[in-house]
């Protein structure tokens, strides 16, 4: 499982690297007027482009085709933020209480419980 995940990450990263080369050498000058003639800051963008290249490609084509709606830039996601904040506010006490309940030494002094081990066959797979 681990090796497959590493391979997927490597392929994703390689594609991100190609997008980064195309975007930073060519695309950025076409869609960002403030970036024209500014080169020193561009290496800072490489990790972000590699990590988020699908999002970069989507925004690149939106701006390239002049489909960006100016009015939408002024509508911050207030409701989404409120929902995320409320969920976090609920999750924190739940996580802490559950962690204290399963703790095997203090503050509740539950009797020690042996952690279930995977069988030898499962572990060797």
């Amino acid at each position: 499982m681990g090796n497959a995940l590493i391979t997927i990450i490597q392929v994703y990263g390689a594609l991100g690297g190609l997008v980064a080369i195309a975007f930073l050498f060519w695309g950025v000058d076409r869609i960002a007027p403030d970036a024209r003639g500014a080169y020193v800051f561009r290496p800072l963008l490489i990790p972000g482009v590699v990590l988020l290249w699908p999002l970069v490609l989507w925004r690149w084509q939106v701006l390239e085709r002049e489909r960006d709606v100016a009015q939408r830039r002024h509508k911050p996601p207030r409701r989404s933020q409120d929902v995320f904040a409320a969920l976090l506010a609920l999750a924190i006490p739940i996580i802490l209480v559950v962690a204290l309940l399963i703790r095997q030494q203090g503050p509740f002094e539950w009797p020690a419980q042996e952690i279930e081990q995977a069988s030898t066959e499962e572990a060797s797979q």
């Binding site: 963008l45 972000g48 988020l52 999002l55 925004r59 830039r73 911050p76 996601p77």
Partner: peptide, 21 residues
Amino acid sequence: FTSHDFWLAFLSAPVWKRLHL
């Protein structure tokens, strides 16, 4: 990695804020 002002202008502030949620 997306904290530079370029990302704000490129993604637009609402998309950038959604990402940063």
